[in-house]
Design a protein around this nucleic acid. Structure first.
Lengths: 203, 203
DNA sequence: TTGCTCCTCACGTCACGTGAGGTGGC
DNA sequence: TTGCTCCTCACGTCACGTGAGGTGGC
């Protein structure tokens, strides 16, 4: 539904300010497609359309949109956001607590995964040729015995983590970049596409 | 493609052991649908089919499947796993490092999200009626000023986290359960379905 | 006339889950 | 004959991304 009044045809009253999708996208950092999507599912619908059928968001619409964006930032699903905004959530505290539980859970998994990956990196350096078969053998050993690390290995592991995140020198960064460039030059188009897709999802 | 020999029709040689999808699913903890999927995309295809067209996995197939499962446990995508298993990965160390970077990134996001959710819980307790509007106002305040916490609030926050994860007493757990039961009794079928879906994805 | 923004389909994503409808061996 | 396992479609998931093909105002 939604009011289909042409905003250009307002009568005596001063016309209230409205926003187009593009303007809102620029202002909120959301994409136009995202605004379309929220409209499609009825989560945030513009109250008006102009004579050409273009969406026109009122101030109230913009406010709702900001709430949606804020709630997304807290990790709620669009369904849950709809419940909250329409005041149909039964127990807000419980909802937040469940959300927290989920995040704690993911956090714990990610930490274990990080440690195991860091350990793999350390072991790969110990290997003479870090090939795929070497990696596989390594992982089978790791999953089999759940290897306990020596203090030296744990140090190396922490060092790895530091290097992976913290500031590298200009030279190191350039070297890594050169290496990646050389690698990419040998990739098939589909492999490159795949890598780009993964990078997009990360940001 | 794939060899379409009937395993029941082996000649003089002792028939090698093979597994059905159901047996493998039970043994590996994967679902039958997952095995079908890996077959569909060519990641792990059974070498044989019996006369009725049923999949028959040889020992080599099972070994490959275990590698797939192991690599999944390290967070690699099915495409990456295919590269690794077919030894088509260009730089194994770089692949592992990228994987580690991604995990570190997710980890950092999750930590921030956890802190903000815990803070919301604390604030909800300060509010007299923890309703959806109260939650929204709270979040707007939080995103606006990026509120700095007092030492007392930080303590409460840590306490929240502890309660959310660590061992609660039997009484507390029972009470929470009763509460959830009561809440569920008021849910619409679609809301229940939604909650179940979320729970499935978590495990 | 040329750009720019806007519109509505409609398919693709990732790794499967979930029926639907049917077959084959014990 | 009844269960059980197996089979192949084929749609659904979640929150959009990405064209495709077209319209309207400056």
């Amino acid at each position: 539904v939604g009011v289909e009044v042409d905003v250009d045809e307002f009568g005596g009253d001063a016309p209230a300010a409205t926003w187009s999708v593009g303007e809102l996208a620029a202002a909120t950092g959301l994409t136009v497609r995202t605004l379309h999507h929220y409209d499609e599912i009825g989560l945030a619908t513009p109250s008006l359309r102009n004579h050409a059928g273009h969406r026109r968001y009122t101030l109230a619409d913009v406010r709702r949109l900001h709430r949606v964006a804020a709630l997304r930032g807290f990790g709620f699903s669009l369904t849950e956001i709809a419940w909250l905004l329409d005041d149909r959530a039964l127990d807000v505290r419980e909802l937040v607590r469940q959300q927290l539980d989920q995040v704690e859970d993911r956090l714990a998994r990610s930490e274990r995964l990080r440690d195991r990956l860091a350990a793999v990196l350390v072991q790969l350096d110990h290997a003479e040729a870090p090939s795929a078969p070497a990696l596989l053998q390594l992982m089978e050993e790791m999953t089999a015995v759940e290897h306990t690390y020596t203090p030296e290995e744990l140090d190396e592991l922490a060092e790895r983590r530091r290097q992976a995140t913290a500031g590298l020198t200009e030279d190191q960064l350039r070297e890594m970049n050169d290496h990646r460039q050389a690698m990419r030059a040998q990739l098939t188009p589909e492999q490159i596409a795949e890598m780009n897709r993964r990078r997009m999802r990360r940001s």
